[in-house]
């Protein structure tokens, strides 16, 4: 599995983060982050809470502003110019811990909104695309319901479909399964695995280590705003180098 995944990675750079730093007031959340993500790569980011992993991926689509260093997405340097930010955001899909579906719109409208208004896709075409992706996440029959009528797992799959409708080249996942019941985690992970197998460039903040072993090319461990260790999943789990990583893994795999 890991080998076939490896083969899809190209030399093309999708994201290049250079010496990036971020502060919340005086608090130094991200310290000297250097990260290069190639097209087709699947990266899992883990670490204790407060380690800055969510902040890191939120900087990539400018939901958080970084103060020092540079982020380059798909060859576009992230600046504070709004047009530039909106362009990057329309290329980068994101899924949130709490799904953040729009509760006043139906599932279908949730999926067609951005293509219609940002991409200026005709409504009919946008609806066809939406139905295609809703079938892919296996909930086409819920298209005319409202988010409040769906289970958590279904909502998260809609959120993934909503992002995919924008045909993003990169997907960011911010703890997509941590607000879900155990029975629903699997249906969301299956969707993500399918996406990974199609060669989507993915950055996932997650604690699902089984998922990391199965689809990741690289696992990154963060603590105190720094990248402490990164490696291929086999080596990362079987032979962690840093004592902090060893402690973390023993905590979460121990039970």
């Amino acid at each position: 599995m890991a080998e076939t995944a490896q083969m899809q990675v190209s030399d093309e750079v999708a994201i290049r983060i250079n010496n990036m730093n971020k502060w919340y007031g005086a608090f130094h959340v991200l310290r000297d982050i250097d990260l290069t993500v190639h097209r087709g790569e699947r990266i899992v980011i883990c670490g204790p809470s407060g380690s800055g992993k969510s902040t890191l991926i939120r900087c990539i689509n400018a939901l958080e502003e970084h103060q020092k260093g540079s982020i380059e997405v798909d060859g576009t340097l992230l600046s504070s110019d709004l047009k530039n930010i909106d362009k990057i955001r329309s290329e980068v899909g994101m899924c949130f811990q709490h799904f953040n579906l729009f509760p006043h719109l139906t599932i279908l409208e949730n999926c067609t909104l951005a293509p219609i208004w940002v991409r200026k896709t005709p409504k009919k075409e946008a609806e066809e695309t939406a139905m295609h992706f809703l079938e892919k996440v296996k909930i086409p029959d819920q298209a005319n319901k409202y988010p409040g009528q769906l289970s958590g797992g279904q909502q998260q799959r809609v959120a993934i479909a909503r992002s995919l409708c924008m045909r993003p080249r990169i997907m960011l996942f911010d703890e997509p399964t941590s607000a879900l019941d155990p029975e629903m985690i699997k249906e969301v992970l299956d969707t993500m695995i399918e996406l990974a197998e199609e060669g989507m460039t993915m950055l996932c903040v997650t604690h699902e280590m089984g998922f990391a072993r199965q689809v990741a090319n690289r696992v990154i461990f963060m603590d105190e705003g720094q990248i402490v260790e990164q490696n291929e999943p086999e080596a990362f789990f079987n032979n962690p180098q840093s004592p902090r990583t060893q402690l973390f893994l023993s905590q979460i795999l121990g039970h």
């Binding site: 955001r89 953040n100 729009f102 940002v118």
Partner: peptide, 17 residues
């Protein structure tokens, strides 16, 4: 919830939209 603003932002909608 702040997530509504973030979801709208992350889809590339501009401020008026």
């Amino acid at each position: 919830p702040k997530g509504q603003y973030e979801a709208a932002d992350s889809l590339g909608l501009d401020y008026p939209q």
